[in-house]
Design a binder for these strands. Structure first.
Lengths: 133, 133
DNA sequence: CTGTATCCAGGAAGATACTG
DNA sequence: CAGTATCTTCCTGGATACAG
């Protein structure tokens, strides 16, 4: 728990960012922070057997375009968070599912979403106050 | 803990995204996912008494420009995550510190960073495999 | 149904110069 | 010291058309 006590630590001239692989941090957070990835992950989580077809995902995410769904799924697949299986049928069927790596990301992600749900109102209030000045 | 069992839940035609205020989710995640915010939050966390001057933050974040530091700090201030205090001295001094709201974000953020540190290598391996094909 | 390919607009961010 | 002001570049993402 973070309390607001004084700290004795020095300003730390050697920065902390280096010790934590800023490249990786930025890369992963950029993914999580992009416009659609998180909604896809959350959607996949909801499907029975953790599988969903392209068109099913599309239906669950209002506003997403075919292009962005494709692009974002490819990126998630590239990162190993989602797997993709093509069934050579007519019409074609493609199923996506979270990998175990992808599932493991859901927990920390949920924490963040809980924070958002808890504090969104307070953030908005602060923004309104700021904008009025 | 998420196991890989079959689920009995239906595909859920009514999507989950709506129930969670996708606007707020996207907005907050975009902040967290932007290029500099998280490094500023982490830097502020390290300072004694949670306070730091503009130039001190700058020194701790290699590669950030004055402009982006200013812009990002303003956004964080607007969201109520960081407070800003100007001391009318010569030369001028401005101190930034995390608000309690800002501090409360650090915990979920740390979870995410832990995930990154734990899994970054695996993600990169997956990317390399994907790119070779 | 599940994509690709192309073009385009808007915003994020870098470079640089200047200021109270 | 702590910013502002411009200009420019880059990249994300949207629209549209087409294909296997």
């Amino acid at each position: 728990m973070s309390t607001r006590e004084k700290r004795t630590a020095p300003p730390d001239p050697a920065n902390l960012c280096k010790s934590k692989d800023p490249g990786a941090i930025r890369e992963i957070l950029t993914k999580v922070g992009d416009k659609w990835s998180i909604f896809i992950l959350l959607t996949l989580e909801m499907f029975p057997d953790w599988r969903a077809r392209f068109s099913e995902i599309e239906k669950c995410i209002p506003g997403i375009s075919q292009k962005m769904l494709t692009v974002t799924l490819r990126n998630l697949e590239r990162d190993g968070l989602v797997s993709r299986e093509v069934f050579p049928e007519i019409p074609p069927r493609v199923e996506y599912q979270l990998t175990e790596l992808g599932e493991s990301l859901l927990d920390p992600l949920q924490n963040l979403l809980n924070w958002v749900n808890t504090n969104a109102e307070q953030v908005r209030a602060s923004q309104n106050r700021y904008d009025e000045k």
